[in-house]
Design a protein around this nucleic acid. Sequence first.
DNA 1: GTGCTTGTTGGCCA
DNA 2: GTGGCCAACAAGCA
Length: 282
Amino acid sequence: MPELAEVEFFRRRWADAAHGQRVVSVALHAKAKIFRGSDPDVIAHALPGKRLLNSEAAAKQMLFRFSGDLWLGIHLGMTGELTVQPPTHAPAKHDHLVVVTTKHALVFSDHRMFGRVQFHEGKDAPAWWSEIAPPVLGPEFTGKAVAAFLARRRRAPMKAVLLMQERFPGIGNWMADEILWRAGIHPRREAGSLTPAETKTLWRECRHVARAALEKIAGVGGKLPPDLNIHIPDTWLFHHRWEDGGRCPKTGVPLIREEIGGRTTCWSPGRQKDPGRKAHAK
DNA sequence: GTGCTTGTTGGCCA
DNA sequence: GTGGCCAACAAGCA
C-alpha cells in the first residue's frame, strides 16, 4: 500500500502521538525478516529510556530520531503499517515492532514482511538516508532531469520508468497510473518516444499528484486525517482502478487493466492512446 | 487449489 | 558497463 503520501500519513501518526515522549520498553519479533541488516536485540536494548525527538519521511521511507544519537529507519514494503495503540497493547501476530512510550504503543505491523527496520547509531543520519533520490517536489526534480532520465531509459515502458525510485522517489503503482492517466500517456509508451511537450506534462503531473496526494492523504498543511484515503476525490483514477467494471472518471469509458512493466496497470483507452496503433494522435 | 496483491532486489541476458 | 526483464521474497484474501 504505502507510497509517498501514505508513508507521510503513517509517519505523522506516530509523530503526532509520540514526539517528545520517552521510550519505556520495546517488544519485537526477533525472527521477523523486517530486521534484516539490523540486530533486533540491539534495538530492544538501546531504545528504552530514550526520547523520540523528531522524524522525517522521504520517498517510501521514514526516519525517526531518538536521543542518544539513535535512529530508526522504517520502510513499509508492500503491506506494512504504523498504528498507535494504548501502552498496554498486546502484540498481535504481525506486530513485529512495538515501541512503548509513556502514553502510547507505537506499532509496526507487516504481514508480508517486505518491509524493513534499520537501526543506526551516530551523530548524523545513516548513509542510506542521504542516498535517497531528490524529492519530486524539490528543486532538483526539473523537467530537464526528467527528460534526461527518459532518454536513458528510452526503451522501457513509461509505467516501469515511473516506478524507478532513483528518479521518481516515492512513486508507486497507483501514483504511476494516476500520473500517466492525468498526462494522457499510455503506460506502454516507450520512454524515449515522448515528445518534449508530453515530457513536460508528465513532469507537471508528477508534481501535481505528489502534492495533492500529500494534502489529501497525509493532511499536509492541515490536520492528519483519521484514516487513509478518505479524502481522495472520486474524480481521481485511484478509486476506480481496482473495481471491476470501473470507468474513467473523465470520459466514462470502461477502464482497462493489464500487466505492464511487471505490475498490474490501469488506464483509460482513448484518453491514453495505445502506442501499438499510432504513437501520437492528438 | 488458483491467482491475485499500492515494493525491492539480484541474477540473467542482450 | 548499461539497460531491461523477471522471479523471488511471504502471507493473506477471494
